[in-house]
Design a protein around this nucleic acid. Structure first.
Length: 323
DNA sequence: GGCACAAGCCGCCAAA
DNA sequence: AATTTGGCGGCTTGTG
């Protein structure tokens, strides 16, 4: 177990062949940009490759890291970006990842970088995630890993895996929040001009299931429900709309969206409630009615359960004030 | 906060 | 023969 309060200072990013540049850029932006003039932490940032060899990127150009894997040995955070998972990860990389993990450093992956962590054995028995398109492949290749395709990122012990592309930002901010507190994380988010990141010290604001991706058969039903969120819906009525038996509907729903029907419904109601709290003047009772929660008590129940806060407290933290 | 009842979830299994 | 469907029962979770 890692100890809390451990200072994050040395950051090493490992680039592997066919590294994806956006994800790599996210890591550079988060940890490789000196914002100390604004009172934000600065890191000793090192972009590494095995032997320091130039790496051809996914975009076709070649980048030359300044470092071999040496900085990884001193790093408090080691991050691996997406790469060509068909290629074998060099043993020296795997060893460096294991040693980093063993001494309690953060080990992080973005997107298919998780495959390198898996190859190092760091995902065995751990909850983890990757880009939803690769989740099955990850689970196949590393059967001992508990792959959750429905979250933006997962923290398990000192291993942090994140989903595709932009989820790396959320994961990185989460890490910064854990290491430097929410004030710093919020400032950093603002500097990076990422959408107002529901900080408030509560990470689960970000750890929401990703929206349904391709819902072929369910799409019309989901759209209709979204348009009528203020009305009562049950799994049975949604199944009926989809012309399926409830059991079949539930199975399809999970297959296509990754969530259970009711869980998704509550999630959508919550999103609407949060929006109304943020940019309307409606009272909690009115919001409960508008969002299809039967009562303000039910709304509070779900705020407590999912966000560990109350509607009022949420509003006072996130309310958009008129300028 | 907790109670009682309703609703939802999911493994299992039989039918299609 | 293999896959999909959907009902059942038990357990969990939501609602008032």
């Amino acid at each position: 177990m890692r100890t809390l309060g451990h200072m994050l200072k040395n950051v090493a990013v490992i680039a592997l062949p066919d590294v994806a540049v956006f994800e790599l850029g996210v890591l550079c932006e988060l940890f490789g940009y000196d914002r100390s003039a604004d009172g934000l932490p600065a890191y000793n940032f090192a972009l590494c490759s095995p032997g320091g060899v130039p790496i051809r990127t996914h975009a076709g150009f070649t980048l030359t890291p300044d470092h071999d894997l040496a900085p990884v040995e001193q790093a408090d955070l080691v991050a691996v970006g997406p790469y060509d998972t068909q290629r074998e990860v060099p043993a020296e990389v795997l060893g460096a990842l294991r040693r980093a993990h063993d001494r309690g450093a953060w080990v992080m992956s973005v997107c298919t970088g998780a495959f390198a962590l898996g190859a190092a054995g760091l995902l065995d028995g751990r909850r983890c995630t990757t880009h939803w398109r690769h989740a099955d492949a990850l689970a196949d290749r590393f059967p001992a890993a508990k792959v959750d395709p429905n979250v933006l990122y997962v923290v398990d012990d000192n291993v942090l895996t994140s989903a595709g592309t932009a989820a790396g930002i959320d994961a990185g901010l989460h890490l910064v929040r854990a290491e430097h507190g929410s004030v710093v994380a919020t400032q950093l988010a603002r500097r990076m001009v990422v959408p107002p990141h529901r900080d408030g010290g509560q990470a689960q604001f970000i750890e929401t299931p990703v929206a349904p991706y391709q819902c072929e058969t369910l799409q019309p039903v989901l759209e209709h429900v979204l348009e009528t969120l203020d009305r009562a819906h049950t799994v049975d009525t949604m199944a009926e709309m989809a012309h399926m038996a409830p059991r079949t509907f539930a199975r399809k729903f999970r297959a296509e969206t990754g969530a259970t029907p009711h869980d998704w419904l509550i999630g959508q109601r919550m999103l609407l409630a949060r929006r109304l709290l943020e940019d309307s003047e409606l009272g909690v009772d009115a919001i409960a009615a508008r969002t299809g929660f039967g009562s303000a008590a039910t709304l509070r129940h779900h705020f407590a359960h999912r966000l560990s806060t109350t509607p009022q407290a949420y509003r006072s933290t996130f309310k958009i004030r008129a300028a």
